[in-house]
Nucleic acid binder design. Sequence first.
DNA 1: TGCCAGGCCGGGT
DNA 2: ACCCGGCATGGC
Length: 226
Amino acid sequence: MGNALSGRLRRIYERLWTFYGPQHWWPAEEPFEVMVGAILTQSAAWTNVEKGIRALKEARVLAPEDLRRIPQAELAGLIHSCGYYNAKAVKLKAFAGWFGEQYGDSLVRMFARDVTQLRPQLLDIHGIGEETADSILLYAGEKPVFVIDAYTRRILDRHGLRPAGGKYADYQRIFMDNLALKPRLFNEYHALLVAVGKDCCHKTNPRCNACCLSTEGLYNRVKERR
DNA sequence: TGCCAGGCCGGGT
DNA sequence: ACCCGGCATGGC
């Protein structure tokens, strides 16, 4: 962890923390809600997801057995605001079914499983890909797994840290091979990357070097703040 | 007004 | 092994 890359990653983290402060992720009350939120937030704005979660709570179906019981069309109606509501209703049912069958709806039993076994299991569930699986492991299970999303890729790219290969696992290794494997650190780091990603010109100006996504832009921004 | 948000799946090359 | 269309609402 004493190499140049780990130093840069720690410096980026420190600057993000200085500028944005704690992000309080995941914004959910308990792990099952985190897992549901992880599915609902796929390619969706969190504000839209919040409404869906609230609707699920008000309808008293934010529990695995209820998600299995409720008719799919009715479930889709409750999560309408999340977008892709029909697809996501199918995904929630697939996840709730798996949770019951494999772990008897027990979070303790589920997260007692080693990550090297649990992650592939999650990936086998319809609707759960790498980012969603890792969000569940980190934010619901507090496992030291770094979550990679579109923002994270863009930011690393712009800092000149694009890994060879350029696949999900390649980006993930950048963090996991060069930082202490601490869930709290990974939690805050990923949330901060999303915060700065939202805050910047991102897609509309992919070559912008002055904005806060670049090494220099971020540095200057933190300096202004002080 | 159009573009984008804390992706994933399935089918086609 | 990649590429692409489909899935969809709400906010700026």
